[in-house]
Amino acid sequence: MHPFLSGIVTILIGVGGCVAYFYFSNLVLDKVIFPAQGPRAGHNINRANQWRPWLFLFPAIFVLGLYLVYPVVGSFLRSLYNRAGDEFIGLGNYATLFGSEAFRQAFLNNLLWVIFVPAAATFFGLIAAQLTDRLSWGNIAKSLIFMPMAISFVGASLIWKFVYAVDGDIGLINAIRAALFGSEPVDVLQIPFWNNFFLMFILVWIQTGFCMVILSAALRGIPEETVEAAIIDGANPFQVFFKIKVPQIMPTIVVVWTTVTVLVLKVFDIVYAMTGGNFGTEILPSYMMSFMFRDDGRATAVAFVIMVVVLPVMVWNIVQARREMR
């Protein structure tokens, strides 16, 4: 059967199955297990209502547990075994990793990504949000800056491959350099160290729109009186922005910052498509992919290192969520 047809069948089975599950499980709970009639009707209704949330939650908890909770444990256990998976080597994979030059390079590069990308994306996003705020064509500008959000990392990489190309008839950067300074074309993706920033900028380009949209909403939510009062007191526009507006939207800035940070640790596509990890641009997600299908032990070890790096953000998110619910 053609995959497309089986896709349609899957939609029908999947959606139909979900509807059937929720409807019939609910029916069974109310009519068969705890019928709302007879001598214990009241008791049964209460019991049924105690069980119902778990009925509603079960499919979601099941897939979350299987695909996201179990792998944390599963990956860690697998990372303690050798390549073939038949010999327990303890932390051997981690020892090999931290001993290898390539891993240290990937780790340091990744730190660079985690620092630079969220900072730059949030900064540009904040600037764009503030500048477009009261512009007559602000919505068009926002929409265009937001657009890269829809483009895949691979597509974005290709778009920027055109900009970075060595050939002065393809690459915009080299064309501008040649036109302004008459300099020889360079391959920016092979400049040691700085090539990382050219790759990072692609992700900044994608994420700025996201930051802008959220920060723009936060800026609009600022009580106008505070801004008015500051202006009457003689604050100039820069003071109004940095001393009145930014402090008030600080919580949102932190949320945006952490969201982008977490995303950075997932993106392997850009490095994979642009340099394949060559020229000293390897980062952890792409380093992990180089072991995928070859050495599961080391692949899972790298994945677990990424998890450890994300852990502080995760804890912080959970603490925030708990606090908000109170």
Binding site: P53, L57, I61, L64, Y67, L68, V69, Y70, P71, V72, G74, S75, R78, V262, L265, K266, P285, M288, M292, D296, A299, T300, V302, A303, F304, I306, M307, V310, V313, M314, N317, I318, Q320, A321, R322, M325
Partner: peptide
């Protein structure tokens, strides 16, 4: 346990996909 479940979902938002690849 509702509060804990919500917190768990928030936590799972940031679990790196890479962890799931090999086991799954």
């Amino acid at each position: 346990g509702r509060g804990w479940l919500i917190a768990a979902v928030v936590g799972l938002l940031v679990v790196p996909l890479q962890l799931a690849l090999v086991p799954m």
